[in-house]
Design a protein around this nucleic acid. Structure first.
Lengths: 341, 341
DNA sequence: CTGTTAGCGCATTCAG
DNA sequence: CTGAATGCGCTAACAG
């Protein structure tokens, strides 16, 4: 959308003053009552609330925030909403914020760190109480802004780097290692990998590195790859699986960059008559619902996105001041054996 | 989360005043330059921008909004993020807002109209430029607040009722009718329906009514139902399909409340050896990606959620004033024949 | 327990 | 083209 024409200012009809006049009290009394703060006589409270209802007063939080220098806004920055994992994180954030009077303000970067920089700059101008941001992959300017702002910053999803303040997530590298180890122990020897764009998805790459390390420790390696350029999806997973299977190097297990891709793989095998896991075993990542409901439950790693969102909020508000020392919270992961590997 | 302890006010370090002093200009000049508004000499602009960079000035939009009585916030209210259709709507909203200096503020109601009331009240207190809200199902108080506020209101998803200002979406009743007609024309006669909670999902019920009407017009009816209590999901769809198939009344086609449910149906059939569509045909709603990638593409109706989000923003900002007359925008739908029915 | 006063940081008059 | 003054609506001291 091009620069929008500025909308006309709409004067808010009623203010504290109106309420105060009508209830015959001072403005600050109204203010106290609206925020349940400070001592107020029950009788006055009722009189004021009646006036509030009568004239339909809605406090102006813009003015309130300015006066108290506290916006009660929480900035949330995620790369995408197409990938279901981020809506899940947001649900955790929302759940944690519910009942408080903090409002999440959500922005999407489309995996573009330059756009992220613009977004963070914009978000900071709202003086949020905290910023929750996915990942560690920021431009130097973004990093600097976040670091120098006195807003608490939580970097979500990932704990494989040094956070600005707090990181909440899991180690994708360790998860990758766990996947590799698990599959080696189950007897697989000829490994294939189906993945998507690493430029944008740093965590997928970390998992890949972990997998390679585990295989390396067992004297093995990934024998065949099929990498897509764009983001992950079921259709891309299906396509890349077809491509991998067409290669001369035969594999007995395919590791996918995530569950969406792996589900595509399952569909491809179903369509082409390959038996899972006899002809080829499949392994995903994320533990999405869809994987559990397949005719054979998908073998995968469960991460807990909701928990990441919720914990991020809790950590952000844990300390009154911005924390002095960096802090890492591991929300963990779990191998889900399933039936496809 | 319980009422959060109020965070300490953090004084924003640098203000227009600091910039003005350093650049040796007046505050309003800085203000003009920051907003690219009004005539400014190129030389002064550069001097000011240099000062801005030097001391790392970030304008405070809270103060700006208060002064201009224009918040540049857009409230977005959706019932859930678990159901992928709403993240898709949000993507459309984000796309339409990108490049403008409006910020979406997203809230989730969990299909609870009382919670929605609280949320709308909270949102209005931020004096948003517009409110985009999913559906028509509001409490009287919510309806009244929205109606009486002078914020432009767009009700999204649905156009089967009279909007407050603007409705953007499709007719779910007509979509239901189209589904029924399509299946009758394809020769199906023994209809089953698998659905989820209608209390929360008014649109699913509208589609159901449309289906019944179409069948009625052909002298037919739905012979067997399996209804779940909770929200829709792949697993619930699978479960309800099993239940329906176990009933004595046999059907030759099952219509699902949506694609998630239908995908569950596909998995159930795959698991129990039923051939689709020979033994039983399946029909969904939404046109999700996942449906297209199944071994057989799912027969469904495509709605365009991204378009709904984008169009909603466009309509909201189309008029400078709140529109005088109610307006309905039909984003349409399309039968996708697929291969499961 | 309550009212009065003084800003919060900026945008917008209106003069210069 | 630029600067000084005024107030947006509310909260936070402070008196009472």
């Amino acid at each position: 959308m091009q620069q929008k024409q500025r909308l006309p200012a709409r004067k808010s009809k009623v203010t504290v003053k109106d309420v105060a006049l009508r209830a015959g009290v001072g403005e600050s009394t109204v203010s106290r009552i609206m925020r349940n703060k400070g001592p107020v006589a029950e009788e006055t409270r009722e009189r004021v609330m009646e006036a509030v209802r009568a004239i339909g007063y809605v406090p102006n939080r813009i003015a309130g925030s300015l006066a108290s220098l506290d916006s009660h806004l929480v900035g949330v920055v995620v790369p995408s909403l197409s990938n279901i994992v981020f809506p899940e994180v947001l649900q955790g954030v929302h759940a944690a914020l519910r009942g408080s009077d903090y409002q999440p303000v959500i922005s999407i970067t489309d995996y573009d760190i330059d756009l992220e920089e613009t977004i963070v700059r914009g978000l900071l101008s709202w003086k949020p109480a905290a910023i929750l941001i996915a990942g560690f992959d920021h431009t130097p300017a973004t990093h600097r802004m976040l670091f120098e702002s006195n807003v608490r910053v939580v970097e979500m999803m990932d704990i494989d780097a040094t956070p600005i303040d707090v990181a909440v997530g899991m180690s994708h590298r360790r998860a990758g290692y766990a996947i590799g180890k698990h599959l080696v122990e189950r007897g697989y020897r000829r490994f294939g990998y189906v993945g998507h764009d690493w430029q944008a998805d740093r965590r997928a790459r970390l998992r890949y590195e972990g997998i390679c390390e585990a295989l390396g420790d067992a004297g093995l390696r990934i024998a065949a790859h099929a990498m897509a350029d764009g983001p992950s999806s079921v259709s891309v997973g299906r396509e890349m699986t077809a491509r991998l299977c067409a290669q001369s190097t035969k594999v007995d297990v395919i590791i996918y960059s995530n569950d969406d891709m792996a589900v595509g793989g399952v569909f491809q095998c179903l369509g082409s008559g390959l038996r899972i896991p006899e002809d080829v075993a499949l392994f995903g990542f994320n533990g999405l619902d869809i994987g559990r409901e397949l005719p054979q439950p998908l073998s995968t790693v469960r991460s807990n996105r909701f928990l990441i969102g919720r914990t991020s909020v809790e950590k952000a508000f844990e300390t009154l001041e911005r924390p002095a020392t960096k802090c890492i919270v591991d929300t963990g992961f779990e191998i889900f054996p399933g039936a496809t590997a």
